[in-house]
Amino acid sequence: MKYTLRQLEVFLAVAQSENITRAADQLSMSQSAVSGALRDLETQFEIRLFDRIGKRLQINELGRLLRPQAEALLERASALQQSLQQHQAIGELKIGATLTIGNSLAVDLMARYLKQYPEARLQLKVGNTSSIAEQLLNYDLDIGLVEGEINHPDLDIQPWLQDELVVFAAPDHPLASKNLLSDSDLLSAQWILRESGSGTRQAFDWALHGLLSSLNILFELEQSGSIIRAVSSGMGIGCLSRIALQESFDHGTLVPLNVAGRDFNRQLFIALNRHKYQSEGIKRWLQLCHE
């Protein structure tokens, strides 16, 4: 065999960091050892996996083609080593979650996972749907739990849970006394919403099709907590997942508003990179999500 697993580790580390120094730090190797391993790999097959742009190495088309195969091979080699050692450790799992899921569902899932597999190591990264998709495509995450729909040929999007968005206001807001809001009520209000690119905003835009261009949007914020505080102070009305609002509804600090003729139901999804090898840890996390 003309290549080594170490060379593949170097290739993937450089592909991720686009820098020899950072790759060397990641692998606890010297810079010269990293450069030599990458050079040997390319020389043995008379190929180039990166374009050299100053001190930066940018993965080229061939490198992008080979990257998922190298990733899968190293995952399998690691799994084989664990089996040979008769070691049942799950290892590290990098989970990405959109804001509502990250704050309300993911932590509970992590606690249940660690109760079953206490030897596992979990990382949670929270961002909007587009950010989670980008990290999955770049192999920075193993699993994504997202609120918005994603259309990308390299991502496997699986339906997960049903959710509902709720329009809400402070109890003393003028619209809080109305039994049912009409389109004219929605157009008269000041709105405080999630930012474009978030799954919550995507579902809101679908629900209010035909009115979007005429809505009075006061703020667009990235944090649900900031939206809740702004709406509580009477600055306007908002629309978030019932999951994020239920506690405020229970305490009476916010009230739900009923909207006529608008569908605020939505689907939550699990997202995976189609080309990434599904380790035992990924399989057990997926099993937990569907229990």
Results as ranks from 00 to 15, higher is better:
243 I>L: 13
223 Q>N: 11
253 T>M: 04
250 D>T: 04
222 E>T: 14
251 H>L: 07
239 C>T: 11
243 I>T: 09
225 G>Y: 01
225 G>A: 12
264 F>I: 03
264 F>L: 14
228 I>Q: 14
231 V>R: 01
244 A>F: 04
260 A>F: 04
241 S>Y: 09
226 S>E: 11
253 T>I: 04
224 S>M: 11
261 G>F: 08
247 E>R: 07
246 Q>N: 12
247 E>G: 02
242 R>T: 01
244 A>P: 07
220 E>K: 14
239 C>A: 15
244 A>Y: 02
223 Q>Y: 11
223 Q>D: 13
232 S>T: 03
234 G>I: 01
223 Q>C: 07
226 S>G: 06
240 L>G: 06
226 S>Q: 12
240 L>K: 05
227 I>Q: 10
217 I>N: 11
239 C>P: 15
263 D>R: 11
227 I>M: 08
256 P>D: 10
264 F>T: 05
232 S>C: 02
231 V>I: 03
249 F>W: 04
233 S>I: 00
260 A>D: 15
216 N>L: 09
217 I>Y: 10
252 G>W: 00
234 G>S: 08
261 G>S: 14
243 I>Q: 10
216 N>T: 02
230 A>L: 13
221 L>D: 12
221 L>C: 06
248 S>G: 02
262 R>L: 10
225 G>P: 03
222 E>V: 12
261 G>P: 10
248 S>N: 10
263 D>A: 07
232 S>N: 05
243 I>S: 13
222 E>Y: 14
220 E>T: 11
220 E>V: 02
241 S>I: 02
219 F>C: 10
240 L>A: 04
226 S>I: 02
221 L>F: 09
216 N>R: 14
222 E>K: 15
220 E>S: 15
241 S>R: 07
253 T>Q: 09
264 F>Q: 11
236 G>D: 09
243 I>D: 12
228 I>H: 03
229 R>M: 09
248 S>F: 01
242 R>M: 04
231 V>E: 08
258 N>T: 12
216 N>V: 03
233 S>A: 15
241 S>G: 15
221 L>V: 06
228 I>C: 10
245 L>M: 10
232 S>V: 01
251 H>M: 02
250 D>G: 00
245 L>T: 00
247 E>Y: 04
254 L>H: 03
226 S>A: 12
259 V>Y: 05
246 Q>T: 03
225 G>H: 09
261 G>A: 14
224 S>W: 03
261 G>T: 05
250 D>C: 04
244 A>H: 02
245 L>D: 09
238 G>C: 05
226 S>N: 10
257 L>C: 08
265 N>K: 15
256 P>E: 12
222 E>N: 14
225 G>M: 08
